[in-house]
Design a binder for these strands. Structure first.
Lengths: 96, 96
DNA sequence: TCCATATTTCTAGATTATTCGAATTATAGG
DNA sequence: CCTATAATTCGAATAATCTAGAAATATGGA
């Protein structure tokens, strides 16, 4: 996996609010969770949250699915797994 | 591990130059590598590199050891491993 | 002491990120 | 068509990051 792509993903995860959002999305599993519920639970103003979600989308870490007026956010596990794999393979070579 | 601490580590890894530096440090293993060699190999101006290294130190991702005029940089594997563990445990709960 | 080397700190400009209220768009239902 | 709800985009201020040349500091050796 391209180092630029991994850096982008790490950068977007590297913000307290976004990481908390991401963690919450993971908890919601494959079905995802609506933007509104994330907003209520994490007490982030909606416009701010919208920007953070867009950042996560731009890094390919989550995707969104619309159902009527509600937007559901779902983690892209493959992306997360490839980031973890990069850290393990490229960065943990034969440690100890 | 505290989410703020993990976010800080991810943020500092989330920059192309810093991630490349970190990767190079991993390759150098426990003995580490001098700032000068990193600078030559990655072609980063020394003042810029110095800032990036300070960022990695501030996140606890690397440490530095002086030998005479030479500063060696060494990866803090435990920190990296705890970041990976966070992503796996907190963020990968029962995926698929 | 003087010089060379290694690295950091200073300085400053440019760029990018963050925040959030207000306005806007999109959709569903009556 | 009108209203309510869900979420985004706009706008604008503030803050943080990034970059790199120049100056400074630290160390070792002649």
């Amino acid at each position: 996996m391209d180092i630029e792509v991994v850096a982008k993903a790490l950068k977007e995860l590297g913000h307290p609010t976004r990481l908390a959002v991401f963690k919450r999305l993971v908890k919601s599993g494959e079905s995802g969770i609506s933007v509104g519920v994330v907003q209520e639970e994490l007490k982030v103003p909606s416009s701010t949250l919208s920007h953070h979600l867009a950042s996560l989308v731009s890094a390919g870490l989550i995707k969104q699915r619309r159902e009527g007026r509600v937007l559901y956010c779902v983690v892209e596990y493959e992306k997360l797994l490839s980031v973890i794999a990069f850290l393990q393979e490229e960065c943990c070579a034969d440690e100890q």
